[in-house]
Each structure stands twice: as C-alpha cells, then as structure tokens.
C-alpha cells in the first residue's frame, strides 16, 4: 500500500513507465496496476469511480491482466455490482518493481 499520498503526476508517470516497459499493456491495464500498487484503488469499481472510466471497461482490463498476463489475481466479486477485488500476483509485483514505481 502507499505510504504517502499519490498525486496525479506520479500516477501518470507510473502508467507511462509501465506501458514503456510492457508495450502489450494498454494505458488502462497499466493504470489498474499502478492504482493497485499505489493504493489508489483496490477494486474495479473504485478505480472506475476515481478515473471516470466505464466499469465495464475496467472489468475487461481486469480479465486481460488476470487471464492473459497473470499480473493480477481476482480475490472476490460482488455479483450485485460486479465490483471485483484484485491483488497483484508475484509477476505483477515484479513488473512494477522493474518499472521502479514508487511504493
């Protein structure tokens, strides 16, 4: 979790760093990873609210990150809202460390 409050500039830098390191990731994929790492949002619905991204698109990014890339693990899903809770996998954590994101 973040030890100090993130700001938008740091967040954007993190996203750009991740996309640069792993070009197969979309900015949204990278944003979701960075948000997990920086403690901005731990689930899809919170992420959607903070960034004004349609929740459906965040769920799609989650599917890609979990099923295709193995960078996040789904730890729970609320069937009433589809809010999906996530955590970084070891592979995800390694990617973020490699991208030298502030933790």
């Amino acid at each position: 979790m973040a030890t100090e409050a993130p700001d938008a500039g740091a967040f954007m830098a993190a996203v750009e760093s991740l996309v640069g390191r792993a070009p197969e990731l979309s900015p949204l994929d990278a944003g979701l990873l960075a948000a997990l790492r920086m403690g901005v949002a731990g689930d899809t619905r919170a992420f959607a609210k903070v960034f004004g991204v349609p929740h459906a698109l965040v769920l799609r990014a989650t599917s890609e990150l979990a099923d295709e890339f193995g960078l996040v693990a789904v730890t729970g899903r609320d069937p009433r809202t589809q809010r999906t809770r996530l955590e970084l996998t070891d592979a995800g954590a390694r990617l973020l460390e490699g991208a030298a994101l502030a933790a």
Binding site: M12, V15, P27, F51, V53
Partner: peptide, 13 residues
C-alpha cells in the same frame, strides 16, 4: 492533472 490521467487511461479503448 487528473483529467490528464483520465484521458490517458481511456486512450486506445
């Protein structure tokens, strides 16, 4: 700045 982040995240969607 957040608007910039939002725009960035929606890119290529």
């Amino acid at each position: 700045a957040l608007t910039g982040a939002m725009t960035l995240l929606k890119a290529n969607q």
